[in-house]
Design a protein around this nucleic acid. Structure first.
Lengths: 140, 140
DNA sequence: TCCGGATATTAGACAAAGTCCAGATTGGTG
DNA sequence: CACCAATCTGGACTTTGTCTAATATCCGGA
């Protein structure tokens, strides 16, 4: 039986190490912001959260760190809003529901979703990922 | 039998009118850029094409016009690259194949693709569209 | 033909997201 | 302690896109 996971800062250090990331103060704070909330956050939102009390982490570090997390497979990138990228701490297979009028983004579990009939890929190409985004809005 | 469509500037005027868009010089040029190529173009690319000879159409007009085309259902917006939006003159149901390393974007016909098992929408929500993006890269 | 109002276009200032760089800090290790 | 590598930083910069106020164009009626 799996214990309920608590996203303490200490646990973050272990999580980072397990992904081959040197756990610095800033990286722990940024990981904590994402994982303790389990929400989709933009770089701006991450920076705001991390710097609530006093400014502690620079913009460059936030961007560098999020890119590092992405490369190491710790988070996923969600591209739904042309104006900003969201980072998703949930890396298990899932899709997204995007409310275009509010900007609210939520997960769609992938276990029951079937996608069939996709053409075979061009020679020498491999799939990096399949993004399925359901765009919805409030009925008028 | 459908004649092969030729995307002349004259035909563009008719196309615009049929979508309830007043066909001005600039709008015809922008529509012509998109439809004669049948490619995904960013606003920047559209501007470059329209202003090849001498500068004729302002940035504001290009953006205004593309937004207008979008509202009137003449083109579709494709959000795959975090840095820019692409506009797609193909409005028939289809999906996208995105080569992440080159930025090349191509269509996947939707007639053979089946998506099943999506959850029912929250009360009072309607689907605006479903975007399916297959991200691929050259095998290393 | 001329006028007036509605529609469209324009240059340029502005905003926001993200990148880049050169210098400063930090954290081990011998 | 001294050193080296890794990391972080402020701030300048770039790019995409928006906004605004002034100008231009179009069109219908007197």
């Amino acid at each position: 039986m799996m214990e309920t996971m608590h996203y303490t800062r200490d646990n973050m250090a272990g999580l980072l190490r397990s992904h081959d990331i040197n756990p610095t103060h800033q990286r722990i704070e940024i990981a904590h912001a994402l994982f303790s909330r389990q929400e989709h956050l933009s770089a701006d939102q991450v920076m705001a959260i991390v710097n609530t009390r006093h400014s502690e982490t620079s913009k460059a570090t936030v961007y560098n760190t999020l890119k590092l997390f992405l490369e190491k497979g710790l988070v996923r990138e969600v591209i739904v809003d042309p104006s900003k990228v969201f980072f998703d701490p949930n890396t298990s297979p899932h899709h997204h529901l995007y409310e275009v009028d509010t900007g609210k983004l939520s997960d769609i579990d992938a276990t029951h979703v079937q996608i069939s009939g996709l053409p075979t890929l061009p020679e020498g190409m491999v799939t990096e990922g399949i993004d399925l985004i359901v765009r919805v809005r409030r009925a008028q």
